[in-house]
């Protein structure tokens, strides 16, 4: 539980390296960062390990951020992040661009794996002792440290535009990794209400956020 404080946001040197790499990529081909991820994904899907390493460099902070948020424990998060990337590698030949961006495809795999890990550990625990879930009731808000990130500001604004119940339901589900039945218990509202709020909340977010970065 204390693990979150020991991790650091994406470093400036890392960002500089990435910008350099992007410039190199831009010089080689007229591709933006997104196109680069797409290109790397395509090559990785044909078994290109170097391209996959590039993909790792681009997406590891995204994946690890998602995993750490749900799993909390740094050591276990590392394991899950590794599992996610091995899974991405295995499935890479099946990535279909028409079914969503590389970023969301990888984020989907990461979130699902992290949440499943948390739940399987939870149910193993619950069998021994009916310990109530001690994960925080309110998911921590996005870290202030990288507040200069425009996209993050946009996401915070979009979350702020939801009703209180919509926002809590979406945050507990996505950031907290809770199933909607748990969310219902945590917020003390009917399950049907949670489902509706999650849905209304996501529709609102989709409209506010538009196309991905």
């Amino acid at each position: 539980m204390s693990g979150v404080s020991s991790v650091r946001p994406i470093s400036a040197s890392r960002r500089r390296r990435r910008e350099q790499r992007d410039r190199v990529a831009d010089a080689a081909a007229p591709l933006g960062p997104t196109a680069e991820v797409d290109t790397l994904m395509l090559a990785a899907g044909r078994g290109d390990e170097a391209a996959f390493a590039g993909l790792y460099d681009q997406l590891a902070p995204l994946v690890h951020g998602i995993v750490l948020r749900a799993v909390r424990d740094p050591a276990r998060s590392e394991e899950v992040t590794q599992e996610v990337f091995v899974e991405v590698w295995r499935l890479a030949p099946r990535y279909e661009a028409g079914r969503g961006s590389v970023r969301s495809w990888v984020a989907t795999i990461a979130h699902r794996r992290a949440v499943d890990r948390v739940r399987s550990e939870q149910s193993a625990r619950d069998r021994d002792q009916r310990e109530t879930d001690r994960r925080d009731l309110t998911a921590p808000p996005p870290d202030e440290a990288v507040e200069n990130d425009l996209d993050r500001q946009r996401v915070r604004r979009a979350l702020g535009s939801l009703t209180e119940l919509q926002r809590q339901a979406v945050e507990l589900a996505y950031y907290g990794g809770h199933a909607y039945r748990e969310v219902a218990v945590l917020l003390d509202v009917a399950e049907g209400t949670v489902k509706t709020r999650i849905r209304d909340g996501l529709i609102r977010l989709r409209d506010e956020l538009g196309e991905g970065p």
Binding site: H64, T81, G100, D151, R156
Partner: peptide, 25 residues
């Protein structure tokens, strides 16, 4: 669509420990 939106919520990139890269590769 919702997966795209959900992925947008992942705004806390965290650099994994350096040794993980080698292990993954």
């Amino acid at each position: 669509e919702y997966r795209e939106t959900a992925a947008r919520l992942a705004v806390d990139p965290v650099e994994p420990p350096g040794h993980l890269r080698g292990r993954v590769l």
